[in-house]
Design a binder for these strands. Structure first.
Lengths: 147, 147
DNA sequence: CTCGGTGCAAAATGTTTGCAAGTAC
DNA sequence: GTACTTGCAAACATTTTGCACCGAG
């Protein structure tokens, strides 16, 4: 029996690009490799500066477009910052949100049991946790029909 | 025994402003009242357009500054959009985040038990949930010293 | 060879700042 | 009266778009 081949990160990128009809350009490889090394959830500009060390002629536009493409084919995630304008909520009681990944609609809901979610020891030891929020992501009623 | 007086929304605003040394201007009252009526977590511009119906001479800048002030004194929340640039995460396995409300640092962590978080029926009925994320918010190791 | 990708420049969008005039307290 | 707030204008930051050239498949 053969040991299953483990895809290297670049092979994974190649495969996913092929699946989605994207070309594997040196820029995309460089951006993906740099992001894999990054543990700090960088924004486009921070990543741009890192990639420039190995790829001096790359442009910020390419980094922006590439990251969006990667997010679209699902090989990276967009976190906490969504690049959207700030949105405000007058409800300061603890409650939770569903967020449509397509249109950004947010639906509030209460769920008493979430108050009992436990905070891992490793986190408790280093930071001060003020509140716990559950974010459900998916498609809202309207968008699920379109997709 | 007296029934405790229930603060009207504007009285609540007055009290909190006084506590924090902010003046209660007609603009602030109008913005707060309008936000209370909004169930859709509007951004500054959307709210600006609504407030203009009752306060035609208000400026977008005032709405922006007021909302930030309100968030600072804790009478409203900033949700999902943080007005920050997009940030990217190469880790697409399900994991969770701690986010520092002061400096924006994100710390990843895994917590197996979160997979068993239940989705309320009311949500399940109308939307498609793709994933469940827990977001812990508070002060990171560095910021908790400063504040 | 062909179509998608890149780099550049410009536009669009959203947020912040500086300042003189106005107003809550 | 004073310090905070406002509205306006300009600056800034980030993202998006248009387009000619280039290169991966």
């Amino acid at each position: 029996m053969q040991i299953p081949a483990r895809l290297s990160s670049v092979d994974f990128l190649r495969e996913k690009c092929r699946e989605h009809g994207l070309k594997v350009t040196p820029q995309r490889v460089a951006i993906y490799k740099e992001l894999l090394k990054s543990k700090d959830h960088p924004n486009a500009e921070a990543l741009f500066n890192r990639v420039r060390n190995t790829f001096p002629d790359i442009s910020l536009d390419t980094v922006n477009r590439t990251l969006l493409s990667f997010a679209e084919i699902g090989i990276i995630d967009i976190v906490e910052g969504y690049g959207e304008p700030r949105r405000y909520d007058p409800d300061i009681k603890n409650h939770h949100h569903f967020r449509c990944v397509n249109c950004g609609t947010i639906i509030d809901f209460a769920e008493e049991s979430y108050a009992r979610i436990k905070v891992p020891q490793e986190i408790k030891k280093t930071v001060v946790v003020l509140n716990k929020k559950v974010l459900l992501e998916g498609y809202c009623h309207n968008c699920r029909k379109k997709i």
